[in-house]
Design a protein around this nucleic acid. Structure first.
Length: 358
DNA sequence: AAGGTTGCCAACCGCCTCGAT
DNA sequence: GATCGAGGCGGTTGGCAACCT
């Protein structure tokens, strides 16, 4: 027996919102707020819409200060950095980009930025199978729960693969500055956005530089590197940090770092990485095709190797790095991407070693 | 010019989390 | 501690527009 629907589906309008509906919803919320109950809201204002639909419409379209389209280079970089770092946690990524919605960023990533970064070759049938194995599977497969779970797991891995590919591209540009490819982001505090659980609202009230501003001034990265008090607050957000917690999420993560020196998480104060150079590399990757064309030369082979490694990408096999590093207690809901990420990292590590031998 | 394909994006779906009871 | 319901989230879909052949 499934969960009861949140609204009477039969009497609820679907599809595009009319101007009249928009006006009603906007006027009501601007005057009364949501009242803390989205489900009841449409009834109050006489809209034949699901409460969830109203919420989505408000958050993604009607809310003040929403920006649509026209992503800047700066925003591209932030999205790229965060996607590599945390995966498809669009709400968290959106929190770093004032005026942007998770849906917008998700669409932008899926339709444009991903292609921009990974290149058109990703559309080849090979990579299509690699990245969307569930789409290639038959309908009868989907009808079976086990197969569905497997497909989900593979889809998850696909996302992880994408991030890994981005990492490899970055590594190809930046050279192997470390044995641990995923430390690229963590080793560059200049690329770390600030974590603001309340998103825009906090940005509006806080004069501290946004991630975009931090990113936009790589020449200032030295001060970021040196400032150890800044480090805790500036550490890249982890998805679970967004959950309501009484303790500082940054502290939780920082503690995790402090106890995991072997995993490539160098504290900024001890890091001597050239964040300026890396920033430039990322910018080149995003905006200068020439710079990553050399990478594409290896991509065919890489994809082949990735296929052979794909079986490594199961959640069962991926032991959670965070377990054993003091994270499991504090981050109880650590999502499956994390284990996939860990699995990725092992595979990438292995792969990168072989790659460097080429 | 017409039909097919691809790209884009708003909206939906269903699962998960968490607070209230 | 168990259950319920609302909110939140990420993945997916459907429809329209632009582009291609």
């Amino acid at each position: 027996m499934g969960r009861a629907p949140c609204c009477d589906k039969a009497n609820v309008k679907k599809g595009p919102w009319s101007a009249e509906e928009d006006a009603k919803l906007k006027a009501y919320i601007e005057e009364h707020g949501t009242g803390g109950n989205w489900i009841a809201l449409p009834h109050k204002i006489g809209l034949k819409r699901c409460g969830k639909s109203c919420r989505l419409r408000w958050l993604n379209y009607l809310r003040p200060n929403i920006k649509h389209g026209g992503f800047t280079e700066e925003e591209d970089q932030i999205i790229c950095n965060l996607y590599i770092s945390i995966g498809s946690r669009w709400s968290i990524i959106a929190a770093q980009l004032p005026g942007r919605t998770d849906n917008d960023i998700k669409n932008y990533w899926n339709t444009r930025l991903k292609k921009k970064l990974l290149g058109k070759r990703r559309d080849s049938s090979q990579s299509r199978r690699l990245l969307h194995p569930n789409q290639a599977s038959s309908n009868e497969d989907a009808a079976h729960g086990e197969m569905k779970d497997e497909a989900r797991s593979q889809t998850l891995s696909a996302s992880a693969l994408e991030r890994m590919q981005l990492h490899m591209q970055l590594q190809g540009l930046c050279g192997s500055t470390t044995n641990y490819p995923f430390s690229f982001y963590y080793n560059n505090p200049a690329l770390w956005p600030k974590y603001h659980p309340l998103g825009d609202r906090v940005f509006q009230n806080q004069p501290a530089p946004t991630a975009a501003q931090t990113l936009a001034r790589p020449q200032d990265s030295n001060e970021t590197l040196i400032d150890s008090t800044h480090q805790s607050a500036a550490f890249p957000m982890q998805p679970e940090m967004i959950s309501k917690s009484s303790t500082s999420a940054a502290d939780v993560i920082q503690e995790g770092i402090d106890h995991s020196p072997a995993l490539g998480f160098h504290s900024p104060s001890s890091s001597n990485f050239d964040s300026v150079g890396l920033h430039a590399d990322l910018q080149s990757l995003l905006y200068c095709k020439n710079n990553y064309s050399s990478f594409l030369g290896h991509e065919e082979q890489q994809l082949g190797e990735l296929s052979s490694c794909k079986e490594l990408y199961t959640e069962k096999e991926s032991s959670n790095w965070f377990a054993g590093n003091g994270f499991e207690d504090k981050l109880p809901s650590m999502g499956c991407w994390d284990s996939a990420l860990h699995s990725d990292s092992l595979m990438v590590q292995d792969y990168s070693m072989r790659y460097e031998d080429l």
